[in-house]
Amino acid sequence: MAPVPGSGLAKGLAVTLRTMTRKTVTEQYPDAQPELPPRTRGVIGLFEENCTVCMLCARECPDWCIYIDSHKETVPAATPGGRDRSRNVLDRFAIDFALCMYCGICIEVCPFDALFWSPEFEYAETDIRDLTHERDKLREWMWTVPAPPALDPGAEEPKELAAARKAADKLAAQQQPDQPGPDHPGQPDESGQEGRT
């Protein structure tokens, strides 16, 4: 079949016209901020109260971009005759975002929940050396950390919830014998139910 001359052009223009009537997909970035999901790996925030200077993050980092300095302080014994305790005090916590590969291993390994991902992304610098951000900057980012998203109904219960439930059940079981309830004795069915919840 010989094509009609110019039919290809007409088809192309038809696509152009169709597209012209549609809404644009371009986001006008500096004027309109993007909506980022809570898990977005934008920048790392530090909640330094939780940091015990265990250095796990710095050790596990695949390219060693976390710098931590600390010193030991002695805390006098709380009770007379007790032992003096020493604790670590954080002097410097810096992340070189020029090296960071945004893998999130530091956040994953932190045993005391001191590091978090924030979707914040506007921290470009004109000098690569300025990308090493110190603890004050990391702390500022901490306040931009969103709450984690709720999990899919098919997901396993988070272990924090499971632990809380277990504790609550234990407490309920302890309080149970104290309650003088009319339905308490002689109803094994109900007590079986309570055991399950």
Binding site: L151, D152, A155
Partner: peptide, 10 residues
Amino acid sequence: LKEDLPAGWT
């Protein structure tokens, strides 16, 4: 996997 899917993701 690292963590489960967020609610409503599917």
